[in-house]
Amino acid sequence: MDFISILSIFVLACFVGYYVVWSVTPALHTPLMAVTNAISSVIIVGALVASAEAGSAAAKYLGLLAVVFASVNIFGGFAVTERMLAMYKKKERK
């Protein structure tokens, strides 16, 4: 992909992010941080590329280490968000 298309995607995504995040209710700001944490670990894609390709042993092991860290975050982040969200309950109507 050429630089301008990538930049366009980035700029538009910033706007989407702006509007989506303002619509998040303040009560869920902590889960918001936990889930953004989990999804920013999509950087695991880069780590997988580094560990999957031949060419440099050093790059491979750096990549594998990054895969471990990113996985802690992905599993930990989504699991802790799930745990928090499960606690938010409405008043029981009797």
């Binding site: 670990s41 950087i43 580094a50 750096l62 990054a66 860290f69 802690v72």
Partner: peptide
Amino acid sequence: FHSLVGLAAVLVGAAAYLNPGA
């Protein structure tokens, strides 16, 4: 968790520098 994302980014950057072909 934030620190781990940061560290992963550094490692991926270093890997890209060492093996740019990949």
